[in-house]
Design a protein around this nucleic acid. Structure first.
Lengths: 151, 151
DNA sequence: CTTAACTAGTTCGCCTCACGAACCAGAAGG
DNA sequence: CCTTCTGGTTCGTGAGGCGAACTAGTTAAG
């Protein structure tokens, strides 16, 4: 299997795990992603759009639906009268925490067939690919395992 | 960055590249995936559902839309009167070929920062993760580069 | 100041996608 | 036969994504 097939299939796998985990927490893949991004700090719509690579109108919808579930809140920006800041609600923060922990756990488990050295090697290689290609910080793992290597 | 973040972000990256490529060929991510699977051979609905991890009804819709674009065709199964076999049309085969070649090229380019050795190492590690976790053959790279390593 | 450009977000209409439940028709087995 | 199983479709619902048009604040030019 070549590197391209490896990337595509692992991506498929990660996606499936992520989606299933989200499903069990009563949210969608995209909403999970939104929550994870917001765990770090609140962001404006434009910033979020850039990170999640979504058109403005798509993001409005996503935030709407997530807000309707009470997980996220729109706050007026102090600096700019038209801008808005999206932040986690109490419930959202809690769910984000649980969801991200559990999802991390499951994703980590995908590499159970690798020993410590290989896992570290894989992490390093992926890190290079990712950092060479401008991938926003859509995820920062804080889960179990690899206690030495939180990004 | 840990292995989990690496997996998630590279998956995000692969997804973005895949979707953009599909978009340029006038199809969606999912339709592209369907075409790629069918490049190998025709399949029945149930088999496809298993590979793409889709519910029956979801797949019916996907095949409908792809067929409406003239890329895919339903043929009656010779063995089973109720079953159906999905095959690429002429146009579908051509598009699948172009799309998969170009997408492969772009995905391969994501690893341009790696030398041959590292790329091979990455491929091997991903292959292990993938094969240890029952990922269907949603993609078989036949693109440029890595001429020695077609799976 | 006032007006013109720009920018942050929303709204709207359209389509794709995914699912479960209900359903239909052919297959298989008693 | 008549039941049971099973491949697929239909239907209804909701999420997701986009571009185009729009509103309301910000900024810059004169």
């Amino acid at each position: 299997m070549g590197v391209v097939a490896g990337l595509v299939r692992s991506s498929f796998l990660v996606d499936a795990v992520y989606s299933e985990s989200a499903r069990e927490y009563g949210i969608t893949h995209q909403q999970g992603q939104l929550l994870c991004v917001l765990m770090a700090q609140p962001y404006g719509m434009s910033e979020l759009g850039g990170m999640l690579r979504l058109a403005k109108s798509s993001l409005t919808g996503l935030v709407d639906r997530t807000a309707r579930r009470g997980l996220v809140r729109r706050e007026p920006s102090p600096d700019d009268g038209r801008a808005v800041v999206i932040a986690l609600t109490e419930a959202g923060a809690e769910l984000a925490d649980d969801f991200s922990t559990e999802t991390c756990r499951r994703l980590y488990a995908l590499t159970r067939c690798l020993d410590h050295t290989d896992r570290t090697r894989l992490a390093a290689l992926l890190a290079r690919v990712v950092s060479e290609n401008e991938v926003p910080a859509v995820f920062t793992d804080t889960g179990p395992g690899e206690p030495s290597a939180s990004a």
